[in-house]
Each structure stands twice: as C-alpha cells, then as structure tokens.
C-alpha cells in the first residue's frame, strides 16, 4: 500500500517542472490575453512612426 503511494508520489515529481513554469507562463498568458490588442496596436504605431516609408 505504502509502496503504491510512494510510486505515485514519485511519478508526480515529473509534473513539478510544469508547476514551476506555471507562475511566469501564467502571468505572460494573462498579459497576452488581456493586453494583446493594446500591445499590437502600440507596436504597430511605433513601427509606423519609426520606419521611413
């Protein structure tokens, strides 16, 4: 019983990198979903302003 539990817990360790990547990736994903149109518009304006026709 305890060996089964130990095996499960041991396998779960492989999922920890996903959990470690989640805070930063989640923040980026949230920023992308929330501000993507604004960021795109801002970058578009900057490029238009900076690049000579």
């Amino acid at each position: 019983m305890s060996t089964e539990k130990g095996k499960k817990r041991g396998t779960l360790v492989y999922l920890m990198p996903l959990a470690a990547a989640l805070p930063l990736t989640g923040l980026l994903a949230w920023a992308m979903i929330r501000y993507s149109p604004v960021i795109r518009k801002l970058i578009g304006i900057l490029i238009k302003l900076a690049v000579t026709a």
């Binding site: 360790v13 920890m16 990198p17 996903l18 959990a19 470690a20 990547a21």
Partner: peptide, 11 residues
C-alpha cells in the same frame, strides 16, 4: 534543481 531547470526551460 531538476524542477527549477526544467521549469525555466518550459517558461
């Protein structure tokens, strides 16, 4: 260390 390294790579 493994979690941190793989997590950084995935991020």
């Amino acid at each position: 260390f493994g979690t941190a390294a793989a997590g950084a790579g995935l991020s």
